Structures are given as structure tokens and as C-alpha cells.
Simulated assay, not measured.
Amino acid sequence: MHDRPTHTLFEDAQGLLVGTGLCGFGLSMLTSAGLVTGQTAGLAVLLSYVTGFGFGVLFFVINLPFYWLAHRHLGRDFTLKTFIAVALVSAFAELADRLVNTQAAHPAVAAVLFGMIAGAGLLAIFRHRASLGGVGILAYYLQERMGWRAGWVQLGFDLALFGAALLVMAPDLVLWSLLGAAILNVIIGVNHRRDRYIAT
């Protein structure tokens, strides 16, 4: 039985740069249309609307408490790559806000493009054994510790998040946001399979 091939340091670096760049740009497009998404990124987006703080700063800070769980249960390498990925997405989102004009995008267009762009970015991040932290790490921990299914934990968080979004956003924007989140999750669900991608 052959060992799985491994990514080189260069391959990991370029994969994380490309993936986080795509996610950062996608999130900038999302927020320019006043939309929201799920998971930790969505919480940071929603808080940015309520508080006026930038998404990048909030996303980076919200993720800080979760690295201890990641280090303890998922290992040092995964935690380090995830920390780097979160920092890069925060930076790229802030840069995109300053350098790219997406103000003309209709919410429907922004939602679809976000789903496709961020979905591709997350695939690159996942395939190089990293994540964007936060709720995903907590869900994994609760599954291991409490027996709660990680997928249900994440779904419950997202339902609560979109429910909260209805309190501060127009209903049509929340519906367009759900479309973007659905497209992103379909892309991940169809393409992120260990039986088809074997490098580690």
C-alpha cells in the first residue's frame, strides 16, 4: 500500500495564498452588496454592519479563542496553517475593499459570485489542510467531546446567524445571502471529497 503524496512547503504556500485571496475578494464583494454569509465569517460580517468596525479586524479577533481547541484536537500544523489562512483572508478582504470597486454589483449577482469565488477559495484552503477556523473547529470539538454531529452544530449556528441578520438587514438581502451560502456549500459538498483528492 502506497503512502499518500504530501504537499511541499511551496505548494502549501501557493495554495493558501490563492485560496485566501479568493475568499478575501469574495467577502469584499459580499459586504459591498450588504449581504451576509454563514459560519465565523458571517458573524464577523454581521458584527461589522452593527458596530462599524472592519470585517478583517473582527474576523481575525473572533477566531483567536478557537486556536487552543484546534491545537489540542487537530494538531500544530493544522492550527498554524489555519491561523495564517485567517490572517490572510482578513488582510485580503481589507485590501480588496480599498483597491477593488464592486459597488455596482446587484445583490443577486454578488451572492452568486461570492458563492462561486469563496467556494473555490475554500476548496484550496481545505486541500492544504487548513480552515478558516471558528465555528468549524468548535463543531469538531463538540462532536468529539459531546457526540454532537458537527454538521448539525454548524447548521444550527447558521440558522441562528441568519435569524439575527433578519433583525438588522432587509429581508430580501437575507434571502440573497442564503443563495450565496447555498452555492458555496454545494461547491464544497460536491468537490471536497477525500476519495478523489489524496494529497495531504
Rank of each mutant, 00 (worst) to 15 (best):
A170D: 13
V50N: 01
S131G: 13
G119L: 06
I84T: 13
P107K: 01
V168K: 13
A160Q: 09
V89C: 11
I188F: 05
A93Q: 14
T82I: 06
Q103F: 02
A105R: 01
G34D: 08
S131D: 05
L22D: 04
L47C: 10
I183H: 01
G56Y: 06
A118Y: 08
G54V: 04
W68Y: 12
G54T: 09
V45N: 07
G21P: 04
A33F: 11
G54I: 00
A105I: 00
F92C: 14
T82P: 06
L123G: 01
H71W: 14
A165T: 00
I187W: 06
A44G: 04
G34Q: 02
M169H: 15
E94V: 09
T200E: 15
L30E: 08
Y140W: 08
D97R: 04
R149M: 11
A104S: 15
R72Y: 10
T31H: 12
V174M: 12
F53M: 15
G21T: 00
C23D: 06
L159E: 03
I125R: 05
A41I: 00
F126I: 02
H106D: 14
L16N: 02
N63M: 09
V190S: 02
N63F: 01
R149Q: 15
A93I: 01
L69D: 07
R72P: 06
H2S: 11
T8E: 10
K81F: 03
M29T: 05
Q14M: 09
T79I: 05
A150T: 12
R72S: 10
N101A: 10
A93S: 13
R129S: 14
S28N: 15
L69N: 10
